[in-house]
Design a protein around this nucleic acid. Structure first.
Lengths: 227, 227
DNA sequence: GCCCGCGTTGAACGTGTGTTTAACCTTTGA
DNA sequence: TCAAAGGTTAAACACACGTTCAACGCGGGC
């Protein structure tokens, strides 16, 4: 066992904070790769420390996860401002663009998979972002207006994020995080054409289904739904 | 502890098989409600037996899960033939329609969440079904043709299934399975309008992005991507 | 020189897990 | 009537987990 202090960069005094960050970063990578079921000892070994020290810094495994959640959400919050506004597959491309910090994205997906606070917050933020981007697109004339902008944004965000989630769930664990980036790009290429088709031409040949539904919600034939 | 045989219906001889089925059904419901992390003893208690008997019948917990997977996939395979062919939200409505055997659907989603054989098989089958339904819709003139029918079917299936998966992940555990049906219907109502909008009108106002992409894949402007 | 925090470790604890095993009870067959 | 067989159980095992705790090394202040 080599001394952990030999790894630290700065001198004593501020090394404690650096150790906590090192543990957090190692946890993010490990959780992203293997899911949240991995033991604390594995995470600790990745960070070059023991499990007890993780407890000392984060109180519990759940505390460590919350710290990771908080950090990831914060990074994504600040970093997403640089994302392209109105791209093709909207959410997918937005995440594919990210690629630079793929571990963070994979962690977010794993967190989505497990549910919890970050999951809800992440989804809500994605919906808000989508709504904002779509509104900008509508204003610039690139995107058609909607009768329910918030609902459409939520629909598109849920579909995009969800397909990513499903894709991660179906694929086996990535041995290297680089694989995630590459496979993500491949997925992006595979679905770009269908997505562009559907999003520019639509799927149905006529407006019948939409008009029927609009007629239904505005003037229901009978009143079995009204409470 | 009441005698387990008092629950059994038929006489002796065939009761062994009935017990195995009872365990399997209880496991499906419990896994659907609480996920695959629940202990074997909980499942056994649901079925009115002990953990040892589960081992005796299925060899291991994984064996039990495989049996559940096999059964669920089989039921869905035979039952889905009755599903409506070309409905609005395609996959979502198709699963919402199902509602009768909601536990099976929830189990399938949980299995999707955990990954594995059933997950892959289920996704592949959904993609094939979607392709079939879309082809029928194209033939009847309801749905526009695609340059890549299989890709479009996969795209739509992944989006629909994925959004459901995300929705289940974000929502807390259902105390009763009936809640799943009701909330699923509510979700369906929420996204029907946006889905119909996007699927009939599309999202973009012009064909520029699609045409640009088509031009790109047929005749790339420069070759920076070529390896 | 001595002591005192602080960062850190290694071992232990309690719990819950999947799994194994020996025995029990009931039914079947001769 | 006895023996055999199979369904079923309760207890125990081995293991991994999260968590706790006592102790160690090593700086800096009196």
């Amino acid at each position: 066992m080599r001394s952990t202090r030999a790894v630290g960069a700065s001198g004593p005094g501020g090394s404690g904070e650096a150790t906590a960050e090192r543990i957090r970063d190692a946890a993010i990578k490990r959780f992203a790769r293997d899911g949240f079921a991995v033991g604390l000892r594995v995470v600790a070994a990745d960070a070059g420390v023991t499990a007890g020290l993780v407890m000392h810094y984060f109180g519990s495994k759940d505390g460590l996860r919350q710290a990771c959640d908080k950090y990831v959400l914060e990074v994504i919050r600040t970093e997403k401002t640089k994302a392209v506004t109105g791209s093709a597959t909207v959410m997918i491309a937005q995440l594919a663009e990210v690629e630079r910090f793929a571990p963070l994205a994979l962690y977010a997906l794993r967190s989505l998979q497990a549910g919890g606070e970050l999951a809800t917050a992440f989804v809500e933020q994605m919906c808000r972002d989508a709504e904002e981007y779509l509104a900008a697109g509508v204003e610039s004339g690139v995107i058609k207006p909607s009768r329910d902008p918030a609902g459409r944004a939520r629909y598109l965000a849920m579909q995009g994020l969800g397909s990513l989630l499903l894709w991660v769930a179906v694929h086996p664990g990535f041995t290297e995080i680089d694989d995630f980036s590459k496979q993500l790009r491949q997925l992006s290429e595979e679905i770009t054409l269908p997505a562009l088709e559907v999003l520019t031409q639509g799927l149905f040949t006529d407006r019948k289904m939409l008009d029927d539904y609009l007629m239904y919600v505005c003037d229901p034939p009978a009143g079995p739904i009204e409470p």
